[in-house]
Design a protein around this nucleic acid. Structure first.
Lengths: 221, 221
DNA sequence: GTCTATAATACGATAGAC
DNA sequence: GTCTATCGTATTATAGAC
């Protein structure tokens, strides 16, 4: 609550980091991501993070001044991962190609970075105390920009009339669901804990939904 | 972790409750829902819940023996709300009607019970420690049952070929997104904190996506 | 940079008067 | 049933030796 990611980024001292510093910070962040994404900010303890990083708690606090700073560092890294797929949408391509590849990128991102996705979900659910500014400025701006591209396709009759920002919401929610709600997905499908074999079928589903047509014509009533 | 909602339900003593008992339990549960859904299980404190219930902490613990019991009570109530829209899907109706009204019910549920939705999301994100059994048994069974109905429509050529369970995932994620990620939705749309005026546009988007066709024919590449 | 020891506090839960 | 007082513990963070 005290800091936001954008403020924190400018607080970093300008001193160059040694190899061992970078290695230890990486170890800490990797461990912290594991714990935060599984337990949430308040459910995570420094003890557990230190244990996962194979490091003493005071030593961990030598690298990050407190728990919140670790959390903010993770969120900062996260935002790039989160934005990357969206940035790539281009107005030069055809709607089906651009939307299809965006969905693929987002789904790949869920598969590759499920912990990051859950960390993000936890942060939003908590009211976005650290990334509220980011959402209102950087993300909003990028969404407006990409929504304009989608709107262009709508105006050209290539896309069904809709609020393009809500189309983005639909893509975000369906793709992130497979990372954030993976436990539910697995339980419902009857899969074992580590199994992520559902992603192929997920990709087919989303292709049908966003690029094809779900309900056959003539049966809509 | 210690108990699950199904076990807890059978632990309740058979003594009849007085009016003041029911009132106080209701006050506590209402306050706890507010706090748990906003802060998560570990972020919520008994102090805060007691404060929100306008009650002393020991008095609160007179009605619920510990923090976890309050949480489990909330989850138990929640599951009925969560399942109700799904139960109503009938094989007698037409695909577009049944799917369309299911989406409407789920979206209405997000609008009417955003705190319950966030409580559920928090629980799943945390690995479903209390409702894992429910997901694997009761929910899975209901999903299998409704998926069979959808599969029937697919076999009849009324619905595009897909794994019907993933179709349900898509409906869950898109509709729940408007409750669970409401902060992000509002920030991106430039709305003020309490504003939920986006639900009408959301309904139109989901109708287009699930019942219509997003990408115009002839432009898919 | 890393450790042991410990301070400081927040929090869940209980004791016991009324 | 409700309260004040408080216990016990978990947890964040620091002090200070090495």
């Amino acid at each position: 609550m005290a800091d936001t990611v954008t403020e924190a980024a400018t607080t970093t001292p300008a001193r160059a980091k040694t190899r061992i510093q970078r290695e230890n910070e990486t170890r800490i962040l990797r461990a912290a991501l594991e714990v935060f994404s599984e337990k949430g900010f308040h459910g995570a303890t420094l003890d557990r993070i230190a244990g996962a990083a194979d490091m003493s708690k005071p030593n961990l606090l030598y690298y990050f001044k407190n728990k919140e700073e670790i959390h903010i560092a993770l969120l900062t890294d996260l935002l790039d991962i989160w934005l990357a797929p969206l940035r790539e949408i281009s107005g030069d391509g055809r709607p089906a190609d651009e939307i299809g590849s965006y969905i693929r990128r987002k789904l790949d991102s869920s598969r590759a970075f499920p912990r990051e996705s859950r960390l993000f979900a936890n942060e939003i659910l908590a009211g976005a105390p650290h990334i509220g500014d980011f959402l209102q400025t950087e993300l909003k701006q990028l969404v407006d920009e990409k929504a304009a591209i989608l709107q262009g396709w709508i105006d050209a009759g290539q896309l069904a009339p809709c609020d393009p920002r809500h189309l983005l919401f639909a893509i975000w929610s369906t793709t992130q669901h497979y990372a954030d709600f993976s436990v539910q997905v697995r339980h419902v499908l009857g899969l074992t804990p580590g199994d992520v074999s559902y992603y192929d079928e997920a990709a087919r589903m989303l292709d049908t939904l966003f690029l094809g047509r779900l309900v056959a014509p003539g049966t809509e009533g």
